[in-house]
Simulated scan of single mutants.
Amino acid sequence: MGRLEDLKANVEEYFQSAELLFKQGLNNAAFMMYFKALVAITDYILWRDLRVLPENHRERFRIVKPRYPELYNVLSYYFPYYRDTYTKRVDDRVLVAIRNDVIRLKEKIE
């Protein structure tokens, strides 16, 4: 499997895991997996277009911000919620919003 195929498989695996957790009412775990799917979508786009894979979130944000402002806005909006899932419960509205954004962005790489 090539790098793009691996990244796409990761997107699908994270998304399917998130969907299962979402249906089970495990909201924090579902949110974390939707966020991982969002990051994998971002990495897919970065590899496809620039042949670059960031080593961490800071580098990812730095690369994405000037080149993909819409994607940056989505990523940066959910990142604080992602960090908060370690100590707080995710709000249902935020969970549904990230799910919808992941579905929308996932369609752009299919």
Rank of each mutant, 00 (worst) to 15 (best):
R3P: 05
E5Q: 14
D6Q: 10
D6G: 08
L7K: 04
N10P: 04
E12S: 11
E12I: 13
A18V: 01
E19T: 15
L21W: 06
K23Q: 15
Q24P: 01
L26F: 13
N27V: 09
N28P: 05
A29S: 13
A30H: 03
Y34C: 02
F35K: 06
F35G: 02
K36I: 02
L38A: 09
A40F: 12
I41H: 01
T42F: 04
D43G: 08
Y44T: 02
Y44L: 07
I45G: 07
L46Y: 05
L46M: 15
L50P: 04
V52P: 06
V52Q: 13
V52R: 14
E55T: 12
N56Q: 01
H57W: 11
H57F: 14
H57P: 03
E59R: 10
K65C: 09
Y72Q: 03
N73V: 03
N73I: 00
V74S: 03
V74I: 15
S76A: 13
Y78W: 04
Y78F: 15
F79M: 06
F79C: 00
P80M: 11
Y81I: 12
R83Q: 14
R83F: 11
R83E: 14
D84V: 01
T85C: 06
Y86T: 05
T87Y: 09
T87P: 05
R89K: 12
D92W: 08
R93L: 10
A97F: 08
A97L: 14
R99L: 10
R99Y: 12
N100L: 14
N100R: 14
I103W: 01
L105D: 03
L105W: 03
L105M: 11
K106I: 04
E107Y: 00
K108D: 12
E110A: 11
E110M: 11
